[in-house]
């Protein structure tokens, strides 16, 4: 297999995530609807919503500065860039040489920074509320996320996402350990908070006063809204991909042989499907937390991640 095909295949991965993102969101919504005895919209609805919003005129608040206009582009491009750092079907990622998982954390923080600014910028009371809540949540979510990624990195001996995924995929049964399970649960909890899912934030609410993510983007419309929606569904897909590839490390292809690649694609889609089902069931079976309980919730994620890290340390490094 020549390097050229490998490179092309690698570059195809972020694009795959981008194309899949609305479908993942549509599937999660459809599943939740079914679990709630509703019919729900088609799983393709997010695509139509995106197309609709892209065609629509954009209305901007009179008090808005260029920050408001720039935020959707910044948020989307940073999220999309983050996709270039993670392995999807193959253990290699297109920009894996340029940034490791720490860079990934910061690339995910960048959209939040811009969206929080835009929320304040629009001059509506809800935007400011959303921004302040998002900052509160992320200040608890980020340490937990870093800790989870470290626990995976310790197992592989590298903070690079590709190396970690490769080491895990190659490691066979020896990667199994308490750290894997603890890390998986911790990252799942962080994903719920980071992606604005129940029980931290309710993506389907119409109550302005309880919103977090929705409150920040309340003033956006048209193309800006489309980009922000796409960015947030991409973020969800990215987190599910991390869960699938760092903590369920089976079936990933090391090279680009057609057979291995096909197997890897099937395994990836199966894992994503299972994660979406889990997400929907969790979201259906729990009510939203009181806002001030969210730090406790993320504290649990942090402690689990820390325990995972320690157990890895004890098992692998003999500390």
């Amino acid at each position: 297999m020549n390097g050229c095909a490998m490179t092309a295949a690698c570059w195809f991965q972020p694009l795959l995530l981008l194309l899949l993102a609305p479908l993942i969101q549509g599937c999660a919504r459809k599943l939740k609807a079914c679990l709630q005895n509703r019919t729900g919209a088609s799983v393709l609805q997010p695509y139509w919503d995106l197309l609709k919003n892209l065609r629509k005129e954009e209305v901007l608040s009179e008090t808005a500065s260029p920050v408001m206009r720039a935020a959707p582009y910044a948020a989307f491009s940073a999220t999309f860039l983050a996709c270039f750092l993670v392995p999807v079907l193959f253990t290699a990622s297109p920009l894996g040489f340029a940034g490791d998982m720490i860079a990934l954390v910061y690339l995910l923080a960048l959209p939040r920074f811009f969206m929080a600014l835009a929320g304040l910028d629009a001059g509506s009371a809800f935007g400011g509320m959303g921004s302040s809540r998002e900052m509160m949540i992320s200040s608890a979510a980020e340490p937990a996320l870093v800790m989870v990624l470290f626990s995976a990195a310790v197992r592989a001996g590298s903070t690079g996402a590709s190396e970690t995924a490769a080491a895990l995929a190659a490691g066979g049964p020896s990667v199994l350990g308490p750290g894997l399970a603890l890390g998986f649960i911790a990252l799942f909890l962080v994903a719920l908070a980071e992606c604005g899912r129940l029980p931290v934030d309710n993506p389907a609410t119409h109550l302005e006063l309880t919103m977090v993510h929705e409150a920040m983007i309340l003033e956006h419309s048209g193309r800006s809204l489309a980009l922000l929606e796409l960015a947030s569904s991409l973020k969800l897909t990215l987190f599910l991909t991390l869960l699938a590839n760092l903590f369920i490390p089976w079936g990933m292809a090391g090279g680009t042989e057609p057979g291995a690649a096909a197997l890897s694609a099937v395994a990836f889609l199966l894992k994503l499907g299972a994660l979406v089902v889990t997400l929907s069931v969790v979201e259906t079976s729990t009510a939203k937390l009181r806002l001030f309980r969210v730090p406790d919730f993320l504290g649990i994620a942090f402690v689990l991640a820390l325990l995972g890290l320690l157990s890895e340390g004890i098992l692998r490094l003999g500390l």
Partner: peptide, 16 residues
């Protein structure tokens, strides 16, 4: 009440 605490499953059952 169930709708507003973000528990649409319970709300759907009661609304039925």
């Amino acid at each position: 009440i169930a709708t507003d605490v973000g528990f649409p499953f319970g709300a759907a059952q009661m609304l039925l």
